[in-house]
Simulated assay, not measured.
Amino acid sequence: MKRKTSSKKYRASILRCKEWLKKHRNMPAPYIWWLIRPKLWGNYRYYGITDNAPMLYKFLYEVEKLLFKWLNRRSQRKSFDWEKFRLFLKKFPLPTPRIFVNIYDVRVRIFA
């Protein structure tokens, strides 16, 4: 049985990111990046379980699309096209998803 993020929870997370970006779009872009990184890490830590990597990457892609959209809506002129946005992402990379909990790991971990 494969595990993946519930579609209801996934949509709610995307909606929360959308509302947050809508509210904070007037901040400087590097500051938005600095604030959204912990939100992405929190999502990865919570949903980063075995077999859920595709949903984590899908979440990252959706957040990138939202960032592109809201950064372009800050003025009457478009700030970015996709090429410039990709260069911006190279300069200010977002955290990449990773699996934090492997349920098939047979080693027992004892926390002190």
Rank of each mutant, 00 (worst) to 15 (best):
S75C: 11
K4R: 14
I99Q: 09
G42R: 12
S79K: 05
I49D: 05
R77V: 04
N26S: 12
L71F: 04
L60G: 00
F59C: 01
R25Q: 03
R98T: 09
L40Q: 06
L89F: 09
P97L: 04
K39E: 00
K39N: 03
A112Q: 15
R98W: 13
T96V: 08
M27F: 02
G48P: 06
A112W: 14
K78Q: 12
D105R: 07
W82K: 10
N102D: 13
F100M: 10
F111P: 07
K65P: 03
K58W: 03
D51T: 13
A12H: 06
F85N: 07
R11P: 02
L40E: 01
D51H: 12
R73C: 06
L87R: 01
R109N: 07
D81E: 15
M27A: 08
R98L: 11
D51P: 07
L89Y: 09
L71C: 02
R107T: 11
L87D: 02
S13Q: 15
Y10M: 09
M55E: 07
W82Y: 14
I32F: 04
R86E: 12
P54W: 13
P38N: 02
S75E: 12
K91R: 05
E64D: 13
I103A: 01
P54Y: 12
L40I: 08
I103E: 06
L60S: 07
I103F: 02
W33E: 10
K91L: 07
S79Q: 06
L71M: 03
W70K: 11
